[in-house]
Amino acid sequence: MALNMYFKNGIIRKTRCQISDELVPALYQIHDNANFPQLTWLIDNLYDSLQIQPDIARALVDEILAFEKLILSLHLPFPRVPLQNLQTFFMEAATNQQVIHTSSTL
């Protein structure tokens, strides 16, 4: 199951991103870690229809960057491009003060 996310980018246009099945196992590595409360919240609610507010999106950006640094310091493999795409998506939503809407797919 993938999590599809989008926010409005203009009157008709939407910016989209997805938490793919390949990224989910990497995210579960930090589940319930006190240093990553927003990522843990996202994982816990991964398949619910969420709305992510801009302040939460900004916190997710910070946690994704910290997560990437942690993985790199441990020399562990991870899906780098999907993680960076996720970080860019959350940053753009936070910068533009847009609410992110989500839906899961089977």
Rank of each mutant, 00 (worst) to 15 (best):
D32K: 12
K69W: 11
S49P: 05
F67H: 12
R58L: 04
T88N: 04
L46K: 14
F90R: 07
I100P: 02
A59I: 06
A66V: 09
L42Y: 05
Q18A: 07
L50T: 04
Q18D: 07
N35T: 12
E22L: 02
L86E: 01
I30S: 13
T102F: 06
L3R: 11
A93L: 02
L39D: 12
N4E: 13
F90L: 10
D55S: 15
M91C: 10
Q38F: 08
E22H: 01
A59C: 12
D44M: 12
A26Q: 04
D55V: 12
S20H: 00
A26L: 06
L76F: 03
A94P: 05
N9E: 12
S20G: 00
D48V: 05
L39S: 14
S73E: 14
I43Y: 06
Q87W: 01
F78D: 09
N45A: 09
T95W: 01
P54I: 00
R16T: 09
H31N: 15
A59V: 04
P82Q: 01
P79G: 02
N35D: 15
F90M: 13
L39Y: 08
L60N: 05
I64R: 02
D48A: 10
F7S: 10
L70N: 13
A2G: 00
N85I: 04
Y47A: 14
E63W: 07
I43T: 09
D62L: 05
M1C: 06
R80Y: 05
D44G: 13
T105H: 05
Q29N: 14
F7T: 09
R16E: 04
A93V: 01
L50M: 11
A93I: 00
T102Q: 09
N4D: 13
T105V: 05
S73M: 11
Y6A: 15
D48R: 14
P77T: 11
Q84W: 03
T15G: 02
L72I: 11
Y28E: 15
D32M: 08
E63P: 14
L60W: 04
S49E: 11
M5I: 08
I43F: 04
I56G: 01
F89E: 02
D32N: 12
S104K: 06
F67T: 11
H101C: 14
Q29S: 13
E68L: 07
A94K: 02
S103F: 05
S49D: 11
K14S: 10
L74W: 08
N33H: 11
P82M: 01
A26R: 03
L65R: 11
R16W: 03
D32E: 14
P82R: 01
V99K: 10
D62G: 08
T40K: 08
N45V: 08
I56Y: 01
N35E: 15
Y47I: 11
F36R: 12
M1N: 05
F90A: 06
A57R: 04
A2T: 02
P54D: 00
I19T: 07
L3G: 08
